[in-house]
Design a protein around this nucleic acid. Structure first.
Lengths: 271, 271
DNA sequence: AACGGTTTTATTGCATGCATTCCGTGCAAC
DNA sequence: GTTGCACGGAATGCATGCAATAAAACCGTT
């Protein structure tokens, strides 16, 4: 990881000199408005520090920058983010409620360790959510939405062709997120994002073989076509298979306890 | 502005080395400035204040004590809970991430208003989750789990027979929660609880007619029997129908104008 | 050297002070 | 009568200080 990624947040090391004006330098305070608004729009509301810290920390955890089980020292994070402990602690509480951080009372916070059993469980829930998402997408998505997903797909394929794993994965995630969004159910999309963030961290532990990677791309291709044809039953099956393969790839790195394996199994039931 | 003098001696020796009891868990009604002894309950556990505040506020919101769209004044809540603003604000941030509270930057927090469209969306997600929960319950629940749900069911029926709506509803909720739990998927249960809490508040807007109430009890009866028989396909259908009826009952009686969200006691003792 | 208990140190949890922002109010201008 | 704006009270956002707690270091005893 290049150190420059953090430079934007280390710009104000002297917060403690005297009671001065509010911190405005370390975390660039951009508009908290809906996507589409320019970050530097004049007159836009500034994002509160606790919210900025939340997003930065969540990003770092999901990206694996902050490794599972890593200790989160408040003082260190404050220095890195250039904020005081109050907004940082507010952010940590939210991350804990999201499941990305574990709070040990009087002993600080750690990044949630990756528990294979828990990952299995989340995969099962994601399976149910994706099935619903697929149905809603087939029914409600605008043609423009599908076109956008197709564009994302081609970008993803381009990165696949170049062997750019990180970029590939980014678009891969975007496709799944958009699929959950275009059905028009915001609560579904939010829930999907929440759970997806928790398993996204596990991707580093799944060794993506060349064959599996190619297969995943083919599966995405089929998913896209089923969506374009608005063939909900077929899309549901494809999504379930795709997720099952993804989980299997993960479980290869984390051997499963056969006794409890079926507890997290993806939902059955024919289309 | 007064330039407050900063004490330079940071290494101030600590006076106390005695194992003094932590502030409290029950959240005292008085200012915690005095470290003096207080006749607190003997079973005082060591729950942090922000966590205790979180649970209390969540309970009050879900129960409707804090009505939808009610303004949450920090100082008032601090006085009610007997804590300072720091842990209170941490709790509010978590409630916001759970969707029970809406934060208006620089303008405070309000209890999330009940948006019929959002409730519909959540019902759809709950449907997908209940379907998965039913399958897992049929497959994995221990006989003791089913017996426990049956016991809850009978208690619920008893309250129905007495016309005790609040108690009936409490057991009703417990049954659904347990159903999500006994399948052994903790992530599913947590997600279900999270979303369920958001729609539970809407129950006051659904006027439960005598006929609908009786029908709901019959539906629960059938659900219980399908679970006892571990008939997953039938259970899935029953759960979906039950949820559909619940949503229909809510949507029928929800006031057309969302501004009528003014029932319930917003805050006792407030101005 | 190992062990139990005590002091030290680092870190968390909470309360509080202060600057900033928002909103209502009153007054002036149109 | 309406609009615009300055002013003031009130509430929020954040930084910081202090107490409480757990881990680490210490130290004498066996």
């Amino acid at each position: 990881m290049h150190a420059d990624s953090y430079r934007r947040f280390a710009g104000r090391p002297r917060v403690t000199s005297k009671p001065s004006r509010r911190n405005t330098a370390a975390i660039p305070r951009r508009a908290a408005a809906s996507p589409g608004a320019r970050p530097d729009s004049p007159g836009a509301d500034l994002q509160p520090l606790h919210e900025a810290a939340l997003e930065r920390l969540r990003e770092r955890i999901v990206r694996g920058d902050l490794a599972p089980a890593a200790k989160l020292n408040e003082r260190v994070l404050c220095a890195q983010l250039g904020i005081s402990r109050t907004p940082l602690r507010e952010a940590l509480k939210v991350l804990a409620s999201e499941g990305l951080v574990k709070l040990l009372p009087n002993r600080g916070a750690v990044v949630s360790p990756i528990d294979p059993q828990r990952v299995r469980e989340i995969f099962a829930v994601l399976g149910a959510l994706e099935a619903l998402a697929g149905e809603l997408a087939c029914r409600n998505a605008a043609e423009a939405d599908i076109a956008e997903i197709r564009a994302l797909h081609y970008q993803m394929v381009a990165h696949y062709a170049r062997g750019e794993l990180a970029e590939y994965f980014r678009f891969n995630q975007q496709i799944h997120i958009r699929l959950a969004e275009v059905g028009g159910n915001a609560a579904l999309a939010a829930t999907y994002r929440l759970l997806n963030a928790q398993v996204r961290r596990a991707r580093y532990f799944a060794n993506l073989s060349g064959e599996r990677w190619a297969q995943a791309v083919r599966e995405h291709e089929a998913i896209l076509e089923a969506l374009a044809a608005r063939d909900a039953p077929r899309l549901t099956v494809l999504l379930r298979e795709h997720l099952g393969h993804k989980m299997a790839a993960f479980l290869q790195s984390f051997p499963a306890d056969p006794e409890t394996a079926d507890r997290g199994a993806a939902s059955r039931g024919g289309p």
